[in-house]
Design a protein around this nucleic acid. Structure first.
Length: 494
RNA sequence: GGCGCGUUGGAGAAGCGGCUGAACUCACCAGCCUUUCACGCUGGCAUUCAUGGGUUCGAAUCCCAUACGCGUCACCA
């Protein structure tokens, strides 16, 4: 049992699953899976004010959507339940009682104002703010008296002075802190709810957690937790603190990833049309680097490849361009069926097809998605591209200039296409290709001379997706309209 | 301010004292392929690893300072 890998993801349900949280979850998940261990999920909802059911559901949904199913924990059960901290209060109470009895913890009756003032004074003197120890040695009688006055005390841990706590971190190596910089901190709030740092220790211990992988922002919490482990005589898990995810703001400054860097929640990316496997792949690359040249990994491959010693100490920067690239790669390789499933909602939302698409609309959607799959990096771009091609176009002088060289051929091709189109009832990739072939044969024009003028006439651009694919987007009517208009403009050109 | 962590090209990021090509990816540029463009493929893209000192026969890699950046110092997690 001692060597069993038991890793956990323990979010607090105070908001949707954040990109950083998803990455922490992923690393824990991967290390567990790599070693044939257990991945569990626990809800840290001791912040009564901010915790919501809605957030909890969002987190669970997002995690499942990404493919990280947990073997034990909330909703699925297990031997170490319950898996929601507010349901584990008796467990914490036992531990607190134990510490109180042995004198390793004590009641503190100081008011918040008192504490705030103390802190301010220490700060102004340039000291590390910490509890001065006023209630440290209150007698039983003094405590009773204060209790009788109706003051609700907090419980503080008696932190040994003058000691050095060394964390042997799996990614950062040895990191040490002085207990003198910590001070007697609160482990139970005045409402009787234990504080995060205390509850985690009890939970991780009773759940048999072997490795704790979490964000670097927790590094300075770790010495506190270690002091608790020691006070309780618990064996400590291995710790691994992974670097923060940074975002670049408008002025190019790097700071911890937050709202102002764009979307931070997993659902937001889902709604923009990112594939779960692409997000997982991208997240894995944030702070972890594979040994070889491969960049694209499935979850199963990651389970094989992942290891903590390839996790970087320096912060990872969230690079949306890279995410888009990865997503584009997955889109190109996805099956037509899956593409349709993911793409359809975006077409519906844009009003390009109805809520209950007809067979014709479905066929059109399939064709459009297939036509554009090499050109999009996420599904939200699908309607954008379609609308772009359907919008009014202006022919720029530069583009017109590019047609000068093949003026004569262009005119022949354009007219031929117009005529053929008029006789063709509907346009598909194949029928359009056929038209082109006929024109090529009849006019003996080929290559750039054949394609360029048509592209310009239809899109106003010099490059883009295949013309047969664009034809589907535009449809017969629009193409004819543009062709007619363009031929007129073109003929006027000297 | 105390404590902690980090600093490699336009961007992400390998490298952990001696395979002097500082990998790989994105972006960019050039060429090839394709009856056009794109996709794809091939090639180019840091005499240099924040700066200054040291240690060493040898340092991006170890040590010390400096600078800059970030995190954290809650009855939030």
């Amino acid at each position: 049992m001692a060597n069993d890998y038991r890793l956990r993801f323990a979010p607090s349900p105070t908001g949707p699953l954040h990109i950083g949280g998803a990455r922490s979850a992923l690393f824990n998940y991967l290390l567990a899976k790599k070693n044939g261990g257990t991945f569990l999920m626990r809800m840290e909802d001791t912040d009564l004010e901010r915790s919501t059911k809605e957030s909890e559901e969002n987190i669970k949904d997002s995690l499942r959507w990404l493919g990280m199913d947990w073997d034990e924990g909330i909703d699925v059960g297990g031997d170490c339940g319950p898996y929601r901290q507010t349901e584990r209060l008796p467990l914490y109470q036992d531990a607190v009682d134990k510490l109180l009895e042995t004198g390793k913890a004590y009641y503190c009756f100081c008011s918040e104002e008192e504490l705030a003032q103390e802190k301010e004074e220490q700060l102004s003197r340039g000291e590390t703010p910490r509890y001065g120890g006023k209630c440290r040695d209150l007698s039983k009688e003094q405590q009773q008296a204060l209790l009788a006055k109706g003051i609700k005390p907090v419980v503080r841990l008696r932190v040994p002075a003058g000691e050095t706590v060394v964390i042997d971190d799996e990614v950062r190596g040895e990191v040490s802190f002085e207990t003198d910089g910590i001070g007697d901190f609160i482990i139970v709030k005045s409402d009787g709810i234990p504080v995060y740092n205390f509850a985690v220790v009890i939970d991780d211990h009773t759940m048999g957690i072997s490795h704790v992988i979490r964000g670097e922002e927790h590094l300075s919490n770790t010495p506190r937790q270690i002091v608790i482990y020691d006070a309780l005589g618990y064996e400590k898990p291995r710790f691994a603190h992974i670097s923060l995810i940074l975002g670049r703001d408008d002025v190019g400054k790097l700071t911890k990833m937050s709202k102002r860097h764009g979307s931070t929640s997993v659902v937001a990316y889902k709604e923009q049309g990112f594939l779960p496997e692409a997000i997982v792949n991208f997240l894995a690359l944030l702070g972890w680097a594979p040994g070889g040249e491969q960049e694209l990994f499935t979850l199963d491959e990651l389970k094989q490849e992942f290891s903590l010693d390839r996790v970087s100490k320096s912060p990872a920067v969230f690079d949306l361009e890279k995410l888009k690239w990865i997503n584009g790669m997955y889109i190109r390789n996805a099956s037509g069926e899956r593409l349709l499933r993911y793409g359809l909602p975006f077409l519906k939302k844009a009003g390009l097809i109805g809520e209950e698409p007809t067979t014709e609309e479905m066929i059109w959607a399939m064709r459009v998605i297939d036509a554009l799959k090499n050109h999009i990096s996420c599904f939200a771009e699908l309607p954008e591209i379609i609308e772009k091609y359907r919008a009014e176009i202006a022919y720029s002088p530069e583009v017109m200039e590019s047609l000068k060289e093949c003026r004569e051929e262009a005119l022949i091709v354009l007219k031929a296409m117009k005529e053929k189109l008029e006789k063709t009832p509907s346009i598909t990739v194949d029928s359009y290709k056929k038209l082109l072939k006929e024109i090529a044969k009849e006019t003996e024009i080929k290559g750039r001379n054949l394609y360029h003028s048509l592209r310009v006439a239809k899109t106003g651009e010099e490059q883009g997706p295949d013309l047969d694919k664009i034809s589907i987007i535009l449809g017969r009517e629009l193409m004819l309209k543009r062709l007619n208009a363009f031929i007129k403009i073109f003929q006027r050109m000297a």
